[in-house]
Design a protein around this nucleic acid. Sequence first.
DNA 1: GCCAACGTTGGC
DNA 2: GCCAACGTTGGC
Length: 140
Amino acid sequence: MAYWLFKSEPSTWSWDQQVAKGDAGEEWDGVRNYQARNFMREMKLGDRGFFYHSQKEKSVVGIVEVCAEAHPDSTTDDPRWECVDIKAIRRFTEPVSLNDIKAEEALAEMVLVKNSRLSVQPVTEAEWRKICALGQTEPD
DNA sequence: GCCAACGTTGGC
DNA sequence: GCCAACGTTGGC
């Protein structure tokens, strides 16, 4: 199983909206970046991801699961763009802020730190476990 | 609100 | 195929 991070501006699509979709999940649509799309193409059913709020909050707020593999993005006719569906699994007991992450030497190589603009990105298992620990939340 | 970083576009 | 110009994102 692989681990990922999904970034969203809460004013556009928030954790609460994701939770409201329940187990049916929702398309992670609107991605118009090849790198991000390619990562979504690599995702398998059951892969886990962090849900990160950008902008004002800048925190990992919960865990999601891939519930549909890559398919055409319904928000565009352009066949280049695909997306996966994700569903909320659980909220972090404590949100883990970007500051918290930057303060951890073990997390210094995270894509979130190195390339803050990439909206869909891979997370290593070590990073996954570390951030779950910081969030006082079960990793699986 | 600013600006750095990055990606994309289009002219040559 | 290069690169300048431009647009967007997101942290500060």
